[in-house]
Write a protein that binds this DNA or RNA. Structure first.
Lengths: 251, 251
DNA sequence: AAAATAGTGTCTTTAAGACAATATAAA
DNA sequence: TTTATATTGTCTTAAAGACACTATTTT
């Protein structure tokens, strides 16, 4: 066993959180400034090491609470494909399992233990390359955004970007911001209100500063969306590491 | 650092392969009989430990080659959510990353190094509970089958179950077997041949023992299927560990 | 009344669902 | 000709795309 075990790799696991929200009409991600080496001072996704008594989902919930004060029961954590390049972490062999979390528009994030600062940052800014992210967090964030876009097509997760109650217009803005497109308000309204279990009218209305007050809805009971919400013009290839071994075409 | 590190968990990673194929009109999975403890003598998914010089995709390719002699370039490996229960492996802390592989109808599998025997087994038999699978491989296999079903809806992966060339009838059988439904041959034909990049006619025909010979096709260049292939009556909830933290409703 | 935002109705187009008859081979 | 399998055509229905007007509020 000792002989064979030399081939094995003892390593540590981390979870990294891509916490997305819609603020100021943009898709934003929660970033921390790293207080420790490596990559001290760089922006990074919040995350941390897996502990002995917890599984990955538990670690993700714990990190979420530590970094944002959010109870995972309020959120939606989706596990993404692991990143496992042997040289992705200068501290040694560390494989990370990223989680996508969808959050409603939150107050200012509270700086966590491991972070000197936490802030919301527009995703396209973070991905622009104007300043680097620690580790391979740029690839992870890209994957998380892609997954969020796909989830909007097939599930009712868009309601998780909103508060307890919301207007159809707010929900449409979520789609427009996450997809980066504009949608026809009439067709969107029809789709949302006629798809069983997507939203339920709550009866009351929300007054704005001006204009006609909008009717309020709450999230319905359905999880999957059938038929799916269609997004125009996306014929994507399978993403990076998740299907690494399958990228070659069959001839 | 030493103090903090006590909280961390040093562990090993494995990859497990759910290699699916269609044989004898049934969805089948490649199982090995475990030659070593733990679970010696039980059926299990092929798999093994991650090594120091490889990433997870590389480990999956290596295991695939070792267990089946298949070159990963011919196959399609899809990473599934990790299984990380602290007590899932009696040998200690082992987290596993499952991969789904789609294979054409293969000859008899060659027994691998770690296995005393390898065989194809119908998936519904393996999941029936009549005999147990090692570790949490029953849950992994369930997840793999669900993923395969979903992939058939949204991608052209069904062609990977077939050989280099195939008939529309063979492709339809793949859908029927994996989904466990029956499909209208006329509508299926229309959908497949009119969806851009799904299949390309190869010109020749394949003669059967009897009946009209079927035209042969090869896989097209498209990966995603737009519009998606619709499966009736599936309103699924998010699966087990992948969304463990999200199972609670928001209320 | 004017400005601002919310909300609805109809026609067209696309694609799926539901049906049966014809074509091509071997025996 | 019979048998067996492959293939194709049409009508209906569901839902998305495109489009403009009406409704409700504040100022």
């Amino acid at each position: 066993m000792t002989e064979r075990r030399r081939q094995h790799q003892e390593l540590r696991l981390t979870v990294d959180l891509a916490i997305l929200t819609v603020r100021s009409g943009r898709l934003q991600v929660l970033l921390i400034e790293r207080g420790n080496e490596p990559f001290r001072g760089l922006a990074a996704l919040p995350g941390g090491f897996l502990r002995a008594d917890e599984d990955l989902g538990g670690a993700a919930e714990r990190e979420l609470l530590e970094e944002t004060g959010l109870d995972a029961g309020d959120l939606h954590l989706i596990q993404l494909p692991a990143f496992s390049d042997p040289r992705r972490d200068p501290r040694g062999r560390v494989v990370t399992v990223p989680y996508l979390a969808i959050a409603p528009n939150l107050p200012v994030p509270t700086a966590g233990s491991d972070a000197t600062g936490a802030r919301w940052e527009p995703v396209d800014e973070a991905l622009s390359g104007k300043y680097p992210l620690a580790f391979d967090h740029r690839a992870i964030l890209t994957l998380a955004r892609d997954e969020a876009r796909k989830q909007l097509e097939n599930t009712t997760i868009a309601t998780r970007f909103c508060g307890e109650t919301f207007t159809i217009g707010e929900l449409r803005t979520v789609y427009e911001v996450v997809w980066g497109t504009s949608l026809d308000p009439r067709n969107f309204n029809r789709k949302v209100t006629k798809t069983e279990g997507f939203v339920e009218p709550v009866g009351t209305k929300r007054a704005q500063d001006t204009g006609r007050p909008a009717a309020l809805y709450r999230a319905g009971s359905a999880w999957t969306l059938f038929p799916a919400m269609l997004r125009n013009g996306d014929h994507e290839e399978p993403a990076a590491e998740a299907s690494r071994a399958s990228a070659r075409s069959r001839k």
